[in-house]
Design a protein around this nucleic acid. Structure first.
Ligand SMILES: [Mn+2]
Ligand SMILES: [Mn+2]
Ligand SMILES: [Zn+2]
Ligand SMILES: [Zn+2]
Lengths: 129, 129
DNA sequence: AAGATAATGATAACTGTTATCATTACATCC
DNA sequence: GGATGTAATGATAACAGTTATCATTATCTT
């Protein structure tokens, strides 16, 4: 991929302008809502092109892939199964212990994904009330 | 679910008899190969019924769900992206640091999944050779 | 043995995603 | 500026994994 078309520019701007974790459909709808014209296939291709340029990041959740802006330091995710809120966190010790665990098994790591599920503070309070 | 049918028994026996991580299709084919007659829908229903009984465990990978026998202690997974090998590991400190990270964000954890990707020892050697 | 209920299996339907392919937009060279 | 090669677009088909539908069958309880 070489051409940074107006569609891909629009996708990139949208994602860069927020801290959300977008799925392909949300991106498409948000762009169409601003009056842009973009096909869903173009969104999928654009997202994966932008990701392989390193311009955006992604996490693969159970059902679908979600994209977020790049440039933040590495982090993992905590997902509220009640309201869908996605919280980011990072923990250097966890990261290095992962490396250690891999080494112990003779694995050469290329990546990892740690996802934690539970209830965010707000949802916990609402459920307790 | 209350009825332990021959089909579900067969699924359970198959999974209990190995350390593999099975997807639905593999289970179906393995059972058909032994001469059993079982529909793919029944396999899906059986797997999820057995899981909610706690009789088998699962991990949700990017593309599909995989089932393994229950009863092993909690562990996470390391996957070789070259040969598909799935190695299990557990690390108490990582587990408790996860708890700590969640608490810091006000999250009440209900579960988590840590998957590491890379090259297993064998594949690393083959690639170096 | 009956009756109630849950499971089965073939298949349709659904979701997220990639492939196809004709058309369009860019960029480059003349 | 115009021809030409190349990559992107968009509508839509296809695909994988999974769940839903529904008539039929098996299992459990009395
Ligand atoms: Mn991490
Ligand atoms: Mn763990
Ligand atoms: Zn929440
Ligand atoms: Zn390997």
């Amino acid at each position: 991929m070489q051409k940074l078309t107006s569609q891909r520019q629009a996708i990139l701007n949208l994602i860069n302008a927020s801290n959300r974790h977008w799925d392909a459909d949300e991106v498409a709808r948000a762009l169409v809502d601003t009056g842009a014209s973009i096909g869903i296939a173009t969104v999928y291709r654009g997202l994966s092109a932008l990701e392989s340029q390193g311009l955006i990041d992604s996490i693969q959740l159970a059902d679908k892939k979600r994209y977020e802006r790049a440039g933040k330091a590495h982090h993992d995710h905590m997902i509220c199964t009640s309201c869908g809120r996605i919280e980011e966190f990072s923990h250097d010790t966890i990261e290095s212990l992962q490396e250690a665990a891999a080494e112990k098994k003779g694995f050469k790591l290329t990546g990892h994904q740690l996802v934690m599920f539970g209830f965010c503070r707000k949802c916990t309070q609402e459920l307790d009330a």
